[in-house]
Design a protein around this nucleic acid. Structure first.
Lengths: 139, 139
DNA sequence: CCGCATCCATCTGGATACTG
DNA sequence: CAGTATCCAGATGGATGCGG
């Protein structure tokens, strides 16, 4: 590779052209379709947790103390609907439910972890930039 | 590499431990801090557009027909505050303003494009999964 | 041309209480 | 234990009009 800091022009144009309204609306744009969900406040966190192995509902709840039951259920449902995680019910006496990454979900881990790694690497730079900006604005 | 579908356990645990409330709140968690912004409905799109070269305000507006002026300004401000883009004002007769990717913004392109590529690759699979889920639910 | 301010509709997400 | 239902506050985001 030379040094393409950007997506191949064609691919990007495809996405953007479509997105510009030629019958390829926002919800049909692959990029937005995925990124929007990742912005879901809990999705990436749950995905990362499940990447460490299958987990039961209660285990997830405990691992993420400040998620509400409502949001946990809802986010898991959305991830399941997108085929990123799988849900298995065990008919034990008090029924238990286990969630795990699907193959599709596993395949997302690569790109996702790249992003997470970037975030950790550059977090300080971002915070510094914000501090600079806010200070400049105060003046 | 063996086949680490997950972030290094240590790194993930760092992020999650901190996030679990030990003085490393949600807004201080590097992962959420970045991902949340990318979920901003327009951020990734603008970042991708600017990756193709500097653009003026009006050019961005035209390139993204269905963004409101308000959201365009606001998103650009947020990106600028995070140090991902730079803003330069040219004192021409009707003043013009040019936005461009900062070095930090350029460094984000790699991980971001990996994600975009994944989205395009697996978009069909996701849509299929949704269709399956919705159909199963209708029953 | 660029951006801000205001007003207003919608969506997101949390607290709580209740069911199988 | 896992999930649903209801209610409600706050954030998000669009439309419009004004200002430099």
């Amino acid at each position: 590779m030379k040094e393409p800091p950007t997506l191949s022009p064609e691919a990007l144009c495809d996405a953007l052209d479509g997105w510009k309204g030629q019958g390829f609306t926002a919800s049909d744009c692959p990029v937005r379709d995925v990124i929007d969900h990742l912005g879901d406040k809990w999705s990436t966190l749950l995905l990362s947790l499940l990447a460490t192995g299958p987990k039961r509902f209660g285990a997830l709840r405990r691992a993420v103390p400040d998620i509400s039951q409502r949001m946990l259920t809802q986010t898991l449902r959305d991830l399941q609907r997108d085929g990123l995680i799988e849900r298995e019910v065990f008919p034990t006496k008090p029924p238990s439910v286990e969630y795990s990454l699907s193959p599709l979900g596993v395949s997302l881990q690569g790109p996702l972890n790249a992003l997470i790694a970037w975030a950790m690497d550059h977090h300080n730079a971002i915070r510094a930039a914000r501090a600079r900006y806010d200070e400049a604005e105060a003046a």
